[in-house]
Design a protein around this nucleic acid. Structure first.
Lengths: 135, 135
DNA sequence: CCGTATCCGATTTGATACTG
DNA sequence: CAGTATCAAATCGGATACGG
């Protein structure tokens, strides 16, 4: 501590035993994971594929709002990250099946923890955005 | 179900008891939460503020890669969502302290579940991106 | 059936300069 | 110290058209 002496009350300068990792946090894989899953469709597709394998157009119909471009793009990214497996069956017409890899399935657990939080607290967030506290 | 009859093997058309929610999933609050926290800085700031309250420039230095604009914007959004509290102290020079609200703190638990997953599996994801399996 | 290619608008992010 | 304003670049996402 060598910055204060500015007139700022001690409530703002109190310190804790642990200084602050911060730099470690910046490189923490958590932020990385959230950024990957934080796009518009990734999470949805993971949950969907967590229920059972799906074919391409089956996913299109299930998600409904998604464009071909984004469905393909998102699936490719998830595949690249090792979360989704793409299996081509050389039939006529061609059939492509998407499923979760073991790594992808291992994500379902932690995901449900956050899902529970979301279910429990999303109303609270909505109220906060609206204006303020409950009536 | 009136599409098949295409020559696709049954391995691709097998069905499960539960057809597919999908539409429900699209409106699920989980996706919403992920989208909110899925930006470049939100999660990082939440974790940082979870350790202790921070002042504005303190956060700037801690995150380091962040621009003024995005730091302010992200903090304002988190504040709007009821996750972060902004407290102004009328001193000279002005001191502004950011901290987690109870709602924000309640998020730390579920977050650590995903954080653990990230720590345990990020190498696996990196390997998948790199090229392929472990050596 | 399962994609890819291209174009275009919307949103996100950063760099820079300025203010109370 | 703690922001705001403005501009430009990058990325995201959708519509459409075409190919294996």
């Amino acid at each position: 501590m060598s910055d204060t002496h500015t007139g700022v009350p001690s409530v703002l300068t109190h310190e804790l035993p642990r200084p602050v990792p911060a730099d470690e946090l910046a490189e923490c894989p958590v932020g990385d994971v959230f950024r990957r899953l934080g796009d518009k469709w990734s999470l949805l597709l993971i949950v969907l594929l967590g229920q059972r394998p799906h074919r391409y157009n089956e996913l299109r119909r299930s998600v409904e709002g998604i464009s071909q471009r984004m469905l393909t793009r998102t699936l490719r990214t998830l595949e690249t990250d090792g979360l989704v497996r793409r299996e081509v069956h050389p039939t006529v017409p061609p059939g492509v099946e998407y499923s979760l890899t073991p790594l992808g399935r291992s994500l379902l657990g932690p995901l449900s923890g956050l899902a529970d939080w979301a279910v429990d607290h999303h109303e609270e967030m909505d109220r906060a955005r609206d204006g303020r506290a409950v009536g």
